[in-house]
Structures are given as C-alpha cells and as structure tokens.
Design a protein around this nucleic acid. Structure first.
Lengths: 227, 227, 227, 227
DNA sequence: TATGAATGAGGGTTCATTCAT
DNA sequence: TATGAATGAACCCTCATTCAT
C-alpha cells in the first residue's frame, strides 16, 4: 500500500487513458486522506493536497471542480466501502440485534477518518459543490441506504421501512457522537482534568453500542407490539 | 437619564453599572440572534452584529473575547432556556415515555434557531473560544444534564445514569437530524424534485419522535430485563 | 473525402494542404467572432474558442502564437474588408465631403464588432503579440492607409497628405466614440434613468457624422485658405 | 511636494478626523499615480499600491471599494484639475479658435498620466466599480462638461450646444490619439526602424493641434453658414 | 467604556500556454 | 498535425482582531 512516487518532481506522465485518469484521481484522494489524518479539515489547503499528490495545483481542478467537491468524493469512496462491508456482514447468517450493534460500533470505531468525513458532510461539504455533483452523491447514498435497509430488515426481522430508517438515523447519530467523544486535543486535556466535567467525557464505542442497542431494541419492541 | 432605546445611533452612554453591562450584552446577543434567523452562520460578520446591535465593532470585544465566544454565549442562553423548560415539564406529574418524546420533539421543533446553534457547537464554536470560557460553558452544561437527568430518571422510571445518558445522546442526535432535515434551500428544492432522493427527505419532528420513542423504549426494556 | 462540416466533434482530418490550413484558420476566427458577438472580450477564453471552432485547445496554437495574436488576426481581416469597401466607394465618382462622412458613418455603424475590435486594438491586442506579427499587421495597415488616403484626397480634393491623415484620425476617433456610445448594459440603463447624465448619452452615428463633417469641412477650409 | 514619510514602517497614526481621512486618501492616490508613471496599469497590484502608500493592503479597501474604483478616483481628481485649468483659461479674454486648440494641446501634452488614465476609463475602469460610484463620477463629469461647454461657446462664439459637444468629442479623440502616439516601448523602437511604418508614427501634439483646429474650424464654418 | 481606523494573513480558482502522446 | 492533460503563476478581497484616541 505504499505510494510509490509520492512527490515526484518534474513532469508527470500524462493520464491519457480513462484508466490512468482514474488512477490519478485516486492518488489525489489518497493524498487528501493522508493530510486529513494529520490535521484538521480547515487546515488542509488545495496547495498542500497538490504537493502531497505530486501534481500542480491546477491539476486538482481537472479532477474536482472545487475543494469541497474533492472531499465529498473522498467521503463518497468511504461510504461505498462502508456499505460494502455492511452488505457483506448482512449476507452472513446468524445476526442478532446486539450482535449487529456491536459490529457496527466496531466497524465505525475502526474508521475514524470516515467519522470525521461524515461529520463534515452536512456542515461544510455541501456548501460549495456544484448541485449535480451533490445530487449524484445523494443518489448513490439513497440507493445504498435502501438496498442495505432491506437486507437489514431481513437480518434483524424489522418491520418494513425500519431498515433504511435505522441507517438514516445512524447517519444522524454517528457524527454527533463522534464529535462529542473526540474534542480537540487541548480541550480534551482540560476536560479530563476537571472532575465536574466527567459526565461529558464519553467513549464513542460505549455510547454507540448502547444507543444503537436501545434503538434496535426499541424498534423490535414496537414490532412485537404491532404483531 | 439613561437612554434605553435599543438601537440608538451615535455615541452610547457608557454602561457603568453591572446591570447596564448585562443589558448591553443581551442586546448584542439579541442582535446576533436576529441575524442568525436571516442568514447562515458563516455570513454573519462581527461588523454586521455590531451594526445590528447599534454599537461599534470594538465594543463587541468588550463583552466577548472572540466571535465564536459570542455565539457560544448565545447557545448558552438557549441551553439554559431549554433546560428550564425541560425541568418545568419534568416537575409536572404524569409523564409517560411516549409523552416525553412527544414533548421533546415539539419543543425542539419550536426552536429552530436553537437547533442551528446546537449543530454549530461541535464543529465550529469550540474552535476559537478561550479555554476558560469553553470550560465554564461545559460545566454549566454538565450540571444541568446531571440535574435534569436525575429528574428524568424519576419521571420515566429509568435506571440510574440512564437519564443523563439520554440527555447526552439527545445532543448527539438533535443536530444530526436537524441538519439532515434542513438542507440549504437550493439543494432542498433539487432533492424534492428527484424521485430517487425521496428516501433522504425526512421530517425532523417525525424522525425525532420515532427515534426518541425507540431509544426510550429500548432503555426501558433493558430496565425491565435488568430488574 | 474531406469532411467539411464546421463543428464536427471528434478527431478532425489533418489540414495537410495550405488550402485546408487556411480554411481551418478561418473557422477558428469565425468561431472567435461569434463569441465576441455574444460576450465581452475578457470573457472569451481560448478554451471556449476551441470548443466553438470544434478543435482542441492546442490546435489554436498551431495557427496563432497567442490569444492576442488570434484577435489581432480577426481585426486584420476586418480592416481588410473595411478598406476594401472604402476603396470601392472611393472609386465611384461623385463623392462630396458630407456624402463621405455619411457613408463612413453608416458603414461603421453597420459593423459593431469591427468597432469593438478597433477599440481593443491599442489597449489590449498589442500587448502580447510577437513583434513580427504586430509589425506585419501594421505594415498592411500603413499600406492601405496610404493607398486609400491618396484616393480620398482625390475624391474630396484634399491637400496632399490630408487623406491618410484623415484616415489615421479616424482610427483615433472611432473607438473612442464607439465606447462612449456603448457602455456596458447595466451602466447604460442607469445612465438613461438619470436626467443629469443625459448629456453623456450620445448616439454613435449622430456624433460620428457631425464630428467627421466638421473635420472634413475644417480640412477643406484650410485648403481653401492655403490656396 | 516631497512626500515626507513615504514608506514609514510600523503603526501609522489613525486618521480619525475627516480631514485626516482625506489626507490619507490622497496619499494613497498619490502612491498609485507614482506607480502608474513607472509601469503599465495592469502591472500595478493593490499590494504594490499599499506598499508605496505605506499602509496595509486592507486599508486601501477602507477608502476604495475596488481596485478599479481607486483608479477611477485618480482619474476623477485629474479631470477636476483639468477642468479647473480649462475654466481658468476660458475666463481670460482674447481666445481664438487656433489659440484654444493650441492651449488644449499643450495642456494635454503636459499631462501624460492624465492621458493614460483617460484611455483606461472606458475599457477598464468602469468594469468593476460599484454603480453608485460610477454614476457619481459621471455626474461630476457631465456637470463640468456642460458648464465649461457654455463658457467655451462664449469664448469661441460657437452655436449653442457646440461647446459641450466639442468637449465630449475631445474625450473620444484624446485617448485614441494618445495611444496611437505612444505605443509600448519595444514596439515603438521597431516601428521607428521600419521605413514602411513611418506613416503610422505620429506626434501627439502635432496631430492633436491639427485635428482640433480642423474640428473647431469646421464647427465655426457651420455657424457662419447657419447665421 | 466606547469607538472605528488600521492591520495583514490567507487561499481558492482561472486560464494561457506547453508538450507528451 | 492534432490532441487535451498538465502546468503554475498570479491576485483581489475579506474580516476577525487590535489599539490609539
């Protein structure tokens, strides 16, 4: 997984075929991701992305219309991977509600950058992205939510519509919980030092698991009530 | 002899007494709130707040150390009002789980600006606020969460700790759901026009009520299980 | 076998013969002209010219060394046409001073794009054109000015040198008057709405005719004085 | 006339009174003018103006809304000075048509920067100036054109309306002639070296005087005809 | 306390031109 | 000849904050 020529100076080969262009696009996203792992979103400039990707600044704009569109694409990729993993899990039998909550929590906790991106989504990313791009993104998202939602209903024996609803809720819950659990470093230190603030210090995985379990349990309870 | 008209042009009398200072502070926050009702957070400049409040730019900094601190104070006030209302409700007897979910939902839906502010909190407000201010804010928040949490446990007969936990979760859920339900106007229009995206169009109150009911139900279910 | 459709997408046949190259060159200039009719000069990008001409961006540079050189060539063509018309008129007998002023005015008013280009000439076009191109252009211009100048002297019975002088002056006057008569649309609207500004609102043809008549009359008067 | 502290580093005194603010504004315009004397308009950046004026970049925008507005103000000042001089001359008796043409020519030739600015006016300056500013400028211009026009009619015994018309024409003629007479340095050298281009090499004063004399003569001739 | 003039860092984006293919 | 991916220089303006008055 090592990037082979990360900061190659001089003239890059031209991505003349569609295949090469895809590869170049991925390199750029890869570079952006690495920067995101090291610094807050606001601190990442297009210039730094270009440098990290080993291309000129203008080149970025051949692949993404705006800065925000670039990061939306990054989120898009991560969403795809996330739903791939989810679908794979749902295909495997023997899933219980707590088991699912557990699995979700573990998967999410393992993808901190994904959490960051999801949290960014509403507040920032949709601000300066050409409408068509945003809609395309949303369409892909809606599709996967629906498809995985149905699989989820089957696996957990939820009532119709509860699957996608649950996945939608997840998207509302996850960034909120993630942000709450991961304040900026200096703030975190101060909060930890203050006994009065202990109640606000939460562990993402713990809360996620509990909240999710409660929600699923609640949904199933209703099911039983309805049946 | 003090002129009390809120938006008097020209030199203002000096706010010598603590009382006057409080009033001035409130006027500024009031002005900021009005602006927030009319435009997105990013579009509000300190200059516009000053103009709207009828004071000079520099004056704002006599009352708030940074722009973010100003809005954090605004949020602080709204949180106080919110918890006041919550506490009042919890003091009245005869509360059921669905009734509470219902009440919460209605109250929140009636405070759209509060929702906006809560959504801003993690992403933006805590970025550029002097640590002491942030900690003071968090301390107040923690206190009220704990106090109301206990009252909530009593009212709904939840297990120990579940009350504050629920209130904490609420803070994670509310902004996410609010943002999801209220995209920027042009985006909203496009989403509504696209059949494929119908699934992403949610109503805040509907989802809030359902999600909350499920969570509470889930928590209560566990309680019963535990007991 | 050659495809002649002007805006064919996809790979174009190569313009092997000199004839084909000329045709291609003309197509490009034609495209640039059409764009100029629709938008201000600054808004026209090489990219848009290429698209409009149905060729790739790089192809433009096979025919014109710089963007400015392209538009200078466009002006060059229009100058040629203009002088052709002028010479033709001068060849027809029975020309009076007012008649000539009239004819000039009508001809110019009928060529708004030519006026735009002439106005551009000094300010912009000569900035980034390789010297040889500029000199070649100027040489052609000087030649036609001189030739037509002599014809003009004969036709209007002007003293020696007055003909080319008049044509030179014309080049100084025309763009100034044209710009004055045709401000940008929004400005124009505002000017028309303001009674105080009525004096600045001029009609190109009216002023051109009057100014030209005065100049010619003046030149002739001197002639008579001198003789 | 020496600028006393042209590039004073460190904190400048604050221009707190209207008077001081006017002075600061003038300093900025002065700095811009000096830069314009040294380099082409396009090469002048707001940054360089700020440096030359000894203020921060942002300060420029306290006095002028845009770069173009700054230079329009510069032109405005020069126009005022120009009309002041013209009015003063017109007040002195004993003015003949050739005398006036002569005076105008000399005055203009003595103000090369004014010529540059006038040439810039239509092409560039009106592009990015807030409409109110542009209109205010035009109103001032219209007023002076009318007032001086009337004085001119009296002095030269021109028919009614001919005075302002003449001044308007002047504005169309002057930049065109100025540009024609003063090509960019390298181009000028090449033109001078080429015998074929001799015809295009004009002297501003010579042509201005001749053209103006012809125009005035023409206008007067008409008068006589009319009377 | 109040004012508002001054600061100055900061970055996304465009587009003419080049040149590997 | 033709292409179009890559380049990279260039720059205006905003606005939170400061501090002389």
């Amino acid at each position: 997984m090592v990037i082979e020529t990360p900061k190659l100076k001089g003239k890059r080969r031209r991505a003349v075929s569609a295949d090469l262009k895809d590869r170049r696009r991925s390199e750029i996203l890869q570079a952006a991701l690495q920067l995101l792992a090291q610094q807050p979103y606001d601190a990442i400039t297009m210039s730094s992305v270009a440098t990290a990707a080993g291309v000129a600044k203008g080149t970025l704009y051949l692949y993404f219309p705006t800065r925000e569109a670039l990061f939306l694409s990054l989120l898009d990729e991560h969403y795809a991977a996330w739903f791939d993993a989810l679908d794979a899990r749902l295909r495997r039998p023997g899933l219980t509600a707590p088991g699912w909550a557990d699995w979700i929590t573990r998967e999410l906790a393992a993808r901190p950058l994904f959490l960051r991106l999801v949290a960014l989504l509403h507040g920032v990313l949709e601000q300066n992205v050409p409408l068509p791009e945003t809609l395309a993104f949303k369409r892909r998202l809606a599709q996967r939510v629906e498809r995985s939602g149905i699989a989820l209903e089957r696996a957990l024996q939820l009532p119709g519509g509860a699957g996608s609803r649950l996945l939608l809720w997840l998207q509302a819950i996850v960034p909120g919980l993630a942000q709450m659990a991961a304040p900026a470093a200096p703030l975190r230190a101060a909060v930890e030092a203050d006994a009065e603030l202990a109640g606000l210090l939460i562990d993402f995985a713990t809360e996620m698991r509990a909240l999710l379990a409660a929600v699923v349990h609640g949904l199933q309870g209703k099911t039983e009530t309805l049946s």
